[in-house]
């Protein structure tokens, strides 16, 4: 295999890995947005919390796998508590109130993380079994990225299966189209909202842990990543995990390859894609619902 092709293969893998991280984050964001009409501005904070909690778990228990499982669950628990304690009492106030509340929370979490873990830059170390490199067809790839891509595909498949093939998934799909009708059919829509918000927290936390070894942990990672997740939602469109998945892969690849080919203008590439999508198909490339 010639050299430029092997660099390309490597960057495609990196792009896919980044796309998977964005997918995990944006899936929760779009799920919450699509069902509850709340743009969760604390979603980046959940991502950041996932990464930092995993850092502590990995330090104390010395086990990355436990961190990968425990941290997302803890973030899910935190988001569950926030939904019940803060968002639920403001349902009758309209969605703007709730979005503003999540924004206030983003400030608090940003500060709490700085307080507890300090402002230094950290990184998560993956265990030996998924670090180092892997040889496929005479080409070496970093194992951890391959792991992230596989993890992303597995989670994407599980979410797709959950949404398309299970009863709960049907309720969620119905919730995107017509909440009141779902409530009218005797389904406890508030319980659905709580569970969706918690699931979104779990996914964001998982994204944070998985991103730890690649992107690192630093104050400000919350909003930086939230912006990319928002772009994924705009490009992919609302309504299904498939749409988010498509958007995430496109943005992940475009950002990574853009950084290689035109390092100065990589961010513009992302925004150019977003602008074109908005002009040509405002509901997103794979979305069903108009923006």
């Amino acid at each position: 295999m010639n050299e430029s092709l092997s660099i390309l293969a490597m960057q495609v893998l990196n792009g896919l890995a980044y796309g998977m991280l964005l997918f995990l984050l944006a899936a929760g964001l779009s799920l919450i947005f699509g069902n509850m009409d709340i743009l969760n501005l604390a979603h980046g904070s959940f991502y950041m919390l996932g990464a930092y909690i995993a850092l502590s778990v990995a330090q104390y228990l010395d086990n990355f796998w436990l961190a990968l499982i425990l941290a997302p669950l803890l973030v899910g628990l935190i988001s569950l508590v926030l939904e019940l304690g803060l968002l639920r009492i403001s349902y009758n106030r309209g969605h703007l109130t709730q979005v503003l509340l999540t924004f206030g929370l983003a400030y608090v979490f940003n500060d709490l993380v700085r307080w507890i873990w300090g402002a230094a830059i950290h990184t998560l170390t993956p265990p030996a079994s998924i670090s180092g490199s892997l040889e496929i067809m005479g080409q070496t790839f970093p194992r951890y990225r391959v792991f992230v891509v596989l993890l992303g595909f597995v989670i994407a498949f599980l979410l797709w299966f959950f949404q398309e093939k299970t009863r709960w998934g049907a309720i969620i799909r119905a919730g995107v189209s017509d909440k009141e009708m779902v409530g009218g059919l005797g389904i406890n829509i508030h319980l659905v909202f709580t569970l969706i918000f918690a699931l979104g927290g779990v996914l964001a936390g998982l994204s944070g842990v998985a991103a730890g070894p690649i992107l690192g942990l630093y104050p400000g990672m919350d909003f930086e990543t939230l912006i990319f997740a928002l772009i994924v939602v705009v490009v992919g469109g609302l309504g299904s995990f498939t749409a988010t998945f498509g958007g995430a892969i496109i943005i992940g690849l475009a950002d990574t390859l853009g950084k290689v080919w035109f390092p100065e203008a990589s961010l513009f590439l992302i925004f150019a894609i977003m602008a074109v999508v908005l002009l040509v198909k405002p509901q997103g490339l794979f979305g069903g619902r108009a923006a």
């Binding site: 803060l86 009492i89 403001s90 109130t97 503003l100 509340l101 924004f103 206030g104 929370l105 983003a106 400030y107 608090v108 940003n110 500060d111 709490l112 700085r114 307080w115």
Partner: peptide
């Protein structure tokens, strides 16, 4: 400071 802004803001919104 950020926590205080955030909490003050949440209190006003509520």
């Amino acid at each position: 400071w950020y926590s205080i802004v955030g909490l003050t803001f949440i209190a006003f919104v509520l």
